[in-house]
Simulated scan of single mutants.
Amino acid sequence: MTTLPAIIEPDMQQVPALPPTQADDDGQMIRLWLARSASPNTRRNYEREARRFLAHVGKPLGSVRIGDLQDYVASRPGSSATVALAASALKSLFTFAQEVGFLRFNIGAAVNVPPIKNTLAERIMPEADALLMIRQEPDLRNRVLLTVLYGGGLRISEVCGLRWRDLAVRDEAGQATIFGKGGKTRVVLLSAATWKVLTALRGESGPDVPVFLSRKGGALDPSAVHRVVKAAVARAGLSAEISAHWLRHAHASHSLDRGAPIHLVQATLGHASVATTGRYLHARPSESSARFLGV
């Protein structure tokens, strides 16, 4: 049995701060690959999948064959979405390994990502439910947090990274400069209502202070945001499946329902392609040919 590279030992929790500049072995190769992703969540998921895969095949990356990869994907337990994520992660690994010259061939190119059902429609809550979560939150910080997640359509990592210097007055409301997914920066205009509750939270905080403080005085981490959202969901008597990202889905869907141009929603949410934003139109169509029939 091949010894797993140090990068994917079970006690590995995060990518080292300084990845290697070249790959001389499997461990360094995987560290380089993981360092490409700006998202900590993606890095964790990909690292976990690489560890699982190498434990399964029991051989170095250079000795893995197409059949090994195909067999792994075909036998991977979990939902269709989990299997698709596994296939995508490993295809990414082998593609990158060839690009940097670590492997001669990209065996991942021959492996198809299994199709998955689009369940976006199941994760879009009614507007009344989103507002109920916000209005029933008794804690000011948490109420503002929920408001910004929904009103700004922000990702959890973006909310956690907000500092007061990122916010600026704009006309009768304000704007937030967001450092988002893929290392891209965008500016989000906030509504007057969202801006009002947001500025009420500041007090005497300086420009470099996090907008959403933990009890210890630092920035809230993603796990704390998840706990706030789950508590708000329970308080409002809503489905336990609802997560913080559902508020971002709700922002996209509800703004489109209210007539917001799709390119504007794309820019606000920081989607790389308008096709990604268009999924919300398909998830909640405004018309259907079925309504024209007599049955």
Rank of each mutant, 00 (worst) to 15 (best):
K91G: 04
I107N: 04
A110V: 07
E99P: 09
A128T: 12
T95R: 03
I134S: 09
N118D: 08
R123T: 09
A89F: 03
S88C: 02
L131Q: 14
A110Q: 13
T95E: 02
F96S: 09
R141F: 10
G101C: 11
L120I: 03
I134W: 12
I107K: 07
R123L: 08
E127K: 11
R135E: 13
L131H: 07
K91S: 02
L120M: 10
F102L: 04
L131Y: 10
L90Y: 02
L140V: 14
T119E: 13
G101P: 15
L140K: 07
Q98H: 00
A128V: 12
P114E: 00
L90T: 11
A109E: 12
L85E: 06
P114N: 01
F96Y: 15
P114H: 01
D139R: 08
F105D: 15
I116T: 13
M133L: 14
P115A: 05
E127F: 07
P138Q: 10
A121R: 12
L85I: 03
E127A: 13
E122N: 15
T95A: 06
P138E: 12
F94W: 06
F96M: 10
L85M: 06
Q98G: 00
T95I: 02
E137C: 15
L132R: 15
I107L: 15
G108Y: 07
A109G: 08
T119K: 15
T119F: 12
E137G: 08
F94T: 10
A87N: 00
L132E: 10
R104V: 01
L90Q: 02
F94A: 03
L132C: 09
P114K: 02
F102A: 06
V100C: 11
V113C: 00
T95Y: 00
N112P: 01
K117V: 12
V111C: 03
R104E: 00
L131T: 09
A128R: 13
P115H: 03
L132M: 14
F105N: 11
